[in-house]
Computed example of a mutant assay.
Amino acid sequence: MNHSFSLAKLLKKANVDVYFIKHHNAYMVNPPWTKRSFKGRINTTIECLKKEELKVMSLDVIYQTVIEYLYYDPYLYNETAKLKYKMNDIKGLEHIVYTCPSRKNETITSSYDKLICTICNQNMHFGSCGKLDNKGIKHYLDISKELIKREHQKDPSYTLSAL
C-alpha cells in the first residue's frame, strides 16, 4: 500500500467527521513575499466528510477527496472571484518574479507597484486584482522555471543562490 493512503486509513478508522476549511485569497491579502498586507476580502468555505460517508468510501476515494478538498490555487480562484486589493508596496515580489519576460534573464527590481527590468526597462504593473500586466503571477513563475530548466540543461552545475 502506498504511504499516501495512511491518511485515508486514519480518517476511516477515526470514525469522526472531517472538516476542510479554506480561506480564499488569504494568500493575496498577506502574500508570503512581503511583510506588508494588502487590504482585501478573504472568503472562507467549509467542506465536511461525514463519518458515515467515510465508512462506505474506499481508501482511494477518501484519498482523492482529501486531495481535491485541500487543493487551492489563489490565482485561479481570483480569476473568477475578481476580488480587488488596496495597493501597497510590492517590494519583495522581485525575489519570486525575477525573470524579465522579454529578455529571459534575471534582471528585475521593484518600484512600489511595478516590477522593472534593469536592462530593457520593461515595466510590469501590479494591479488591484493581484496580477502583473493582467497576467497571473504564475505566468511569470513559469517563465522563470523554463529559464532555470534551460540553464540547467546547458550546464548541469548551474545553481541559484540568494544574497
Rank of each mutant, 00 (worst) to 15 (best):
P31K: 03
P31Y: 04
P31N: 02
P32L: 12
W33L: 02
W33T: 02
T34D: 01
K35D: 12
R36H: 04
R36V: 12
S37Y: 04
F38P: 02
G40V: 02
R41C: 05
N43T: 07
I46K: 10
I46A: 03
I46W: 04
I46S: 01
I46L: 05
E47C: 06
C48R: 05
C48V: 08
K50G: 08
E53F: 07
E53V: 09
L54A: 05
M57D: 00
L59K: 03
V61S: 11
V61L: 10
T65H: 02
T65V: 03
V66P: 04
I67T: 08
E68V: 02
Y69P: 05
Y69V: 12
L70Y: 03
Y71V: 08
Y71W: 11
Y72P: 02
D73H: 03
P74D: 09
P74F: 03
Y75Q: 15
N78F: 01
E79P: 03
T80D: 09
T80S: 14
T80I: 15
A81P: 02
A81V: 01
L83P: 00
K84H: 10
K84V: 10
K84T: 14
Y85K: 15
K86P: 01
M87Q: 14
M87N: 12
N88D: 11
N88G: 15
D89H: 15
D89G: 15
I90V: 15
K91T: 13
K91H: 07
K91W: 00
K91L: 08
L93V: 04
H95M: 04
I96M: 10
I96C: 08
Y98V: 00
Y98R: 10
Y98G: 04
C100Q: 01
P101Q: 04
R103Q: 07
K104P: 02
K104M: 08
K104T: 06
K104G: 01
N105I: 14
T107E: 09
T109D: 05
T109V: 07
S110A: 14
S110L: 03
S111F: 06
Y112G: 02
Y112N: 12
D113L: 07
D113N: 14
D113A: 07
D113I: 11
K114H: 12
L115A: 07
L115D: 09
C117R: 10
T118W: 09
T118S: 15
T118P: 08
I119D: 09
C120D: 09
N121F: 07
Q122N: 12
N123W: 13
M124Q: 11
C129K: 11
C129S: 06
C129Q: 13
G130Q: 01
G130R: 05
K131T: 14
L132C: 07
D133K: 12
N134S: 13
G136H: 13
K138D: 15
K138W: 12
L141I: 15
L141R: 12
I143N: 04
S144L: 00
